[in-house]
């Protein structure tokens, strides 16, 4: 094997094939990998996995993959621009056609085959919805394999809700519900509820029976959603979460994302909450 081929820190070079504004300061990046090795590496990634995306010169940062294999050839990432984030600013400055790098796929995934036959409760907060989109896509593409699916989708404001143009398809799917909420509802917004996702959750009041929950969002949201789910009778074994860490390598080397003796990047980012609860250190 060549040195290049055995270097896990080397990104695959690709091209920015397209972008789409998803929400305020949140943009979808569609990337076409060019090197055969890159295409092979990403031939069979799974929902929940992540990858480092490079804007060369601005650095690389980890993002959940928001596309699924089989629905088109492009890799998709939703990137929120942070005021002081060098990489996210660098990515937002790119034009279609510009070169980008992708390193991955990394981490574990939502074992979609293990949760077949169950009702699914999906809870996404803000940009945290990005890695949940392939979960929803997988369910909708294999609708008969999964039970009732309830999607609770939250953001601080309506302008921060992501994947809005897919809501109609989600709603139209059989045995599928979508509930939206924003922290503060502007007077002219009628599409959903007002309040935190926990309020929405308690209003919708899903049954814990034969149900798996999948949550992705900021740490504080995961914390309070877990409390609400427990009130509703869910056990920690029913709750899947994806955690984030300040990762710099994605392969368990750089030390930055450890929670006690596990690494979010290499042992996660997907965990059952029962696993997270046993960790020495809190993600909060």
């Amino acid at each position: 094997m060549s040195d290049n081929g055995s270097n896990p820190m080397r990104p695959y070079v690709g091209r920015l094939a397209g972008t789409k504004e998803l929400a305020t300061e949140i943009r979808l990046f569609q990337i076409e990998l060019q090197e055969p090795a890159g295409k092979a590496a990403f031939a069979n990634y799974r929902p929940g996995q992540f990858a480092f995306v490079s804007a060369f010169g601005s650095g690389e940062a980890p993002f959940g993959i928001t596309s699924i294999p089989g629905r088109g050839d492009l890799l998709e990432f939703a990137v929120q621009r942070h005021p002081h984030g060098k990489t996210t600013n660098g990515l937002h400055r790119l034009d279609v056609g510009d070169p980008v790098g992708v390193r991955g796929p990394l981490g574990n995934w939502f074992a979609m085959d293990e949760i077949q036959g169950k009702d699914i409760l999906v809870l996404g907060g803000g940009i945290g919805g990005a890695p949940l989109r392939p979960v929803i896509s997988t369910i909708l593409d294999n609708r008969d394999e999964y039970g009732k699916t309830t999607i609770l989708w939250a953001a601080r404001t309506p302008s921060l809700l992501i994947f809005t143009d897919e809501y109609d398809a989600w709603r139209a799917a059989p045995r599928t519900e979508l509930h939206l909420t924003v922290d503060q509802r502007p007077p002219d917004w009628r599409e959903g509820n007002e309040g935190l996702i926990t309020t929405l959750l308690e209003n919708v009041g899903p049954s814990p029976e034969n149900t798996i929950t999948i949550t992705c969002g900021p740490p504080i949201m995961i914390h309070f959603v877990t409390l609400s789910l427990r009130k509703l009778g869910f056990t920690l074994d029913q709750m899947l979460v994806t955690l984030e860490g300040r990762m710099h390598c994605g392969i368990g080397k750089c030390g930055r994302c450890n929670l006690g003796d596990i690494f979010v990047c290499a042992d996660g980012p997907v965990f059952y909450h029962s696993q997270v609860a046993k960790l020495l250190e809190s993600f909060l």
Binding site: F56, E60, C254
Partner: peptide, 27 residues
């Protein structure tokens, strides 16, 4: 101790060529 940070730093910039180094540094 082996924690590290990873970043791109510019080396040279001309109109037709930009050189960047990707480096990891102790953290």
């Amino acid at each position: 101790c082996r924690c590290f940070d990873l970043r791109d730093e510019p080396v040279a910039s001309r109109t037709d060529l930009v050189l960047i180094e990707r480096m990891r540094v102790w953290d």
